[in-house]
């Protein structure tokens, strides 16, 4: 009886292994591509391989950096169109299988664009590794890419203001400070750029006392990202003040919108 059970188990294992081999990618693919789907915004070695294979086919002409950006997206769409796949710009298993079949000679050492050196490829792989922990937008304590119409420099300056003005406040309060800067950007009464708003005489205390030069932490940077992405807990506030620290009668007279942490936000 036990022997029969063992035989059935062994056959079941063999059958499962055979089925797995049937539905999985060809050997070359299993060495690299994982089962995860890739979409715009994905990062890591899978994207590295995707870019390398698309580059080999002549669809991708950008840097092989492991970041699924616009050029990768367009290359995927063109590949899908030319190979009769649904044109989605997203890399599912079907697209991966077709891509692997179309590039049997690809190997990871090819992963650098024409004219680039092997060492630059190594650098881009490091970038890709960093991307897994958030390197696409932030590297170290700096924004490296802009969001919407704001440059990386604008985002860094905002993070400095948020940290200088609102560290120690709840996260929502930090987002609110960033939102005030953005609300000023959209108000015709204020200057038309982030630096001009931040450095407007007397606009922010942290500029006057030098705290703007402190290095922001990740929380301040996340607050900036959330504000730029559209979160405005102040509902359009243009000013804020700490009632315990200000004696300015004018700012206290402004209509209040909301209180978050120690700050009163006003219009």
């Amino acid at each position: 009886m036990i022997k029969a059970k063992r035989a059935i188990s062994a056959w079941a294992l063999v059958l499962a292994a055979w089925m797995a081999a049937e539905v999985s990618l060809p050997t070359a693919a299993t060495q690299a591509f994982t089962a995860r789907n890739l979409i715009y915004g994905s990062t890591g070695y899978d994207v590295d391989e995707l870019q390398g294979r698309l580059h080999l086919l002549g669809y991708y002409w950008g840097r092989i950096d492991g970041i699924f950006g616009w050029k990768t997206y367009w290359a995927v769409r063109t590949f899908q169109y030319n190979f009769g796949l649904p044109v989605t710009g997203e890399v599912d298993m079907r697209t991966k299988i077709m891509l692997v079949k179309a590039t049997p000679n690809w190997n990871p050492k090819m992963d650098f664009p024409a004219g680039a050196s092997g060492s630059s490829s190594a650098n881009s792989r490091q970038t890709a590794t960093a991307s897994d922990t958030g390197g696409t937008l932030i590297s170290g304590d700096r924004f490296t890419h802009g969001i919407d119409n704001l440059s990386a420099s604008d985002l860094n300056l905002m993070a400095h203001v948020v940290y200088g003005e609102a560290r120690g406040e709840p996260f929502e309060g930090q987002v609110a400070v960033a939102a005030v800067i953005l609300n000023r950007l959209h108000d015709p009464r204020f200057p038309k750029s982030i630096p001009a708003i931040v450095y407007q005489p007397g606009a922010f205390d942290c500029v006057n006392d030098g705290q703007i030069n402190l290095h922001p932490n990740r929380e301040a940077m996340q607050a900036v990202i959330d504000a730029v992405n559209g979160w405005d807990p102040t509902h359009g506030a243009l000013y804020y003040f700490n009632p315990a620290k200000t004696s300015n009668a004018w700012i206290r007279a402004q209509p209040e919108v909301v209180t978050i942490g120690h700050h009163i936000f006003a219009i």
Binding site: P188, P191, K192, A196, Q200, P201, G202, W250, I251
Partner: peptide
């Protein structure tokens, strides 16, 4: 545009006037 930038450099501590709005 230039006049708006000039006005933004004046230390008024937060504008409740609408001069820049008119220029805008």
């Amino acid at each position: 545009y230039a006049a708006q930038l000039d006005m933004a450099r004046i230390p008024d501590g937060g504008p409740d006037h609408r001069v820049n709005q008119e220029l805008h």
